[in-house]
Amino acid sequence: MAVKPETDVFGQERKNWLKRFVSKTISDTTAPGKPSFRVYPTLAYSPETSFEFGFSSLLLFQAKNDTVNRLSEINAFTFVTLEGQYGIWLDNAIYGDKDNWFFLGKTKFQRFPLLYYGIGPETPGNEPALIDANYLLLRQRILRKVVRNAFIGPEFDYQQLYNTDFKQPEGHDVYELPTGSNGGKNLGLGIAMVYDNRHNVLNVRKGLFAELSFLSYRKALASDHNFFGVNLDFRSSHSTSKRNVFAWQVYGNFMSGDVPFNQLALMGGEMIMRGYYSGRYRDKNMVAAQAEHRWLPFKFSRRFGGAVFGGAAVVAPKVNEFSWKHIRASGGVGLRYLLFAKKDIYLRLDVGFTKDGPGFYLFTGEAF
């Protein structure tokens, strides 16, 4: 009897492993109410990072495996770039049985040079400084239900910037060193009030989320600076048809005191004002708004969908100094892929366009 070479057996095993991995990644065979977990590779590109390679993982579950309870999610994202940057992000939105508790937060650690364009609504964009540093963020809200869909509870926010190196543009000094440029740590304690009637945090087809929070950072509480902030976040989603969703968001960040540059209100990023580098414009106060129309999925496809979005934002040192002439606009398009069919979760690829150029974003779940 002829025996296949050992290399063929190993080769077939590798092929079968790859086939099982791909099948598990794109298929959703989990029974309703049971936890779902996926790990899949990601690839992205931006001028700041060059090519970025990483893995995303997503855990979805419902308290006590009861489909009546809201869908909770823990989303992790790790990356490394050709520029030697690396990090891990972790977001959580966890609902207890019958919504009695709600844990909403994020964790970040990254070694990622920050581009610094200065502070204010009219900063130049041709020669940013480079701040190379380690960055740690721990933010969590521990909320208790008071009435249906309404929660209140303590919030803490710890941010640390260390091993910093502020590099001016080559050949000359352009920027005055901002508060916190040598690094530091700040612990904020406060309170958050949330109204949330969404059932699926990652893909809201109908629902309202509203948050008002207050955080105080004091030297007496292990902070390097004294300052405080008020945050407002209002999001609303509306089903315009079985497949289509229209969503909008208004966001405000208002701060006062000796605020370090990395904790100022930051315009841009993967959530709001997509297309702008996060912190392209920064100051103590910011107001932003965005709207988005989503096809989930397209009428001619079972898994692929898309989106169009637009937004505007403005920053200012004081609330009474907001100016129409400083409003910045962004807009873009996105592609969606149905990653968890039974739980209605999509993988999103967005391209945001601004006067500074495009920005690309690949994440699980919608931006808001």
Rank of each mutant, 00 (worst) to 15 (best):
A44M: 12
P169D: 06
T179L: 02
L187R: 01
F304D: 13
H293Y: 15
Y281H: 05
G257H: 03
A367G: 10
M193A: 08
A307W: 11
T49L: 06
L208E: 07
K98H: 10
F166Y: 01
E292R: 10
K206N: 13
L60Y: 09
A313L: 08
A288F: 04
V315Y: 08
T240V: 14
P121K: 08
L362A: 07
D66M: 00
V9M: 14
V230D: 07
W17K: 09
M193L: 15
K318A: 15
I88L: 12
G118Y: 11
D91M: 08
F102V: 05
N126Q: 15
A93S: 12
F214W: 13
G184E: 04
D8W: 14
G275H: 00
Y95I: 04
A329L: 14
L18H: 15
V308D: 14
E321T: 10
I26N: 01
E52V: 06
L136C: 06
W295Q: 01
F103M: 08
F353T: 13
N134T: 01
V80S: 09
I94G: 01
N197R: 03
P47R: 14
L137C: 09
F214H: 09
P128E: 04
L338Q: 06
R205W: 04
V146L: 05
N197F: 02
L264G: 02
L202S: 06
T123E: 09
D258V: 02
H225L: 11
L335A: 13
P41A: 02
L130D: 11
H225V: 01
V39G: 02
S181W: 14
L82P: 00
M273Y: 03
